[in-house]
């Protein structure tokens, strides 16, 4: 590594965010390069000086009183109680394995599942206009080609009472997503396809369907089921019951 390359990695190095392999390369260079060593000391010093800038800043008392006196509009229910209320037993017949995951979803410091569910429900609830209109989902798949940087298979639901409404480009947590809308039994169902990348789509209520993980969540009266398959997430959002969403996954030939 030369001096110009070191500069690219210096921030991550100083922040302790550099992966081990790169760190060894950077340190090998710093061992024999005095000026880069000095630059690193400067960056470290600057970081610690910035860190100390706001020492001793306290919120004013009147703000504290205002915050403490704010109306509590939301309710903080017990998470365990919420999940226990999801009627899942009916779907158990479809499942090969059934597990309930931990409530904590922040393993490896990843995206909490709640944030992903928020996005999915928001996209579903808004009834956004479609850029590509049905009824043929296979044409939608080719419409996505070149527009997104991941594979999109628009599944044809094998049900007689299901139809494909349309597709559009969308996003989940700043990740591009293929957004498709179906109607099943007269209920609107949104299918979002997006790469998992650094999103954490696990925790909460997890079930196994055909050997794949499906994570369940719910928000504002909508249910969400996310299936992970080869680093891609397939998320269904609807006002249909969670077990109906799970059963839909068996209808989607992904």
């Amino acid at each position: 590594m030369n001096c110009a390359q070191i500069v690219k990695y210096l921030d991550a190095y100083v922040d302790g965010e550099l992966e081990a392999g790169r760190m060894i390369e950077v340190e090998a260079h710093l061992d024999h390069c005095e000026t880069c060593g000095a630059l690193t000391v400067l960056r470290r010093r600057m970081k610690s000086e910035i860190a100390a800038l706001d020492d001793g800043i306290v919120a004013p008392d009147h703000l504290r009183r205002r915050v403490e006196g704010l109306p509590r509009t939301g309710t903080r229910r017990l998470k365990v109680a919420i999940f226990a209320a999801v009627p899942i037993a009916a779907a158990a017949a479809l499942l090969l394995v059934f597990t309930v995951g931990p409530w904590s979803t922040s393993e490896a410091g990843g995206e909490p599942m709640a944030a992903v569910v928020d996005d999915l429900v928001q996209r579903h609830a808004r009834e956004l206009p479609m850029e590509f209109k049905g009824p043929d989902p296979s044409l939608a798949a080719s419409w996505f080609r070149g527009k997104v940087d991941f594979p999109v298979h628009a599944p044809r639901l094998k049900l007689s009472n299901a139809s494909f409404q349309g597709a559009r480009l969308s996003s989940v947590q700043a990740h591009q997503a293929a957004h498709m809308v179906y109607t099943v039994d007269g209920h609107r169902v949104t299918l979002m396809i997006f790469p998992v990348d650094n999103l954490v789509v696990r925790g909460g209520n997890e079930v196994r369907v055909d050997g794949k993980n499906v994570v369940l969540g719910h928000r504002n009266g909508y249910n969400v089921a996310v299936m992970i398959d080869r680093d891609m997430a397939y998320a269904l959002s609807s006002d249909l019951s969670p077990e109906r969403l799970i059963s839909l996954f068996t209808e989607l030939s992904i």
Binding site: T75, K79, S104, A114
Partner: peptide, 9 residues
Amino acid sequence: ADSFEWGTN
């Protein structure tokens, strides 16, 4: 408040 889960940061 409801969207926060204990165990997360």
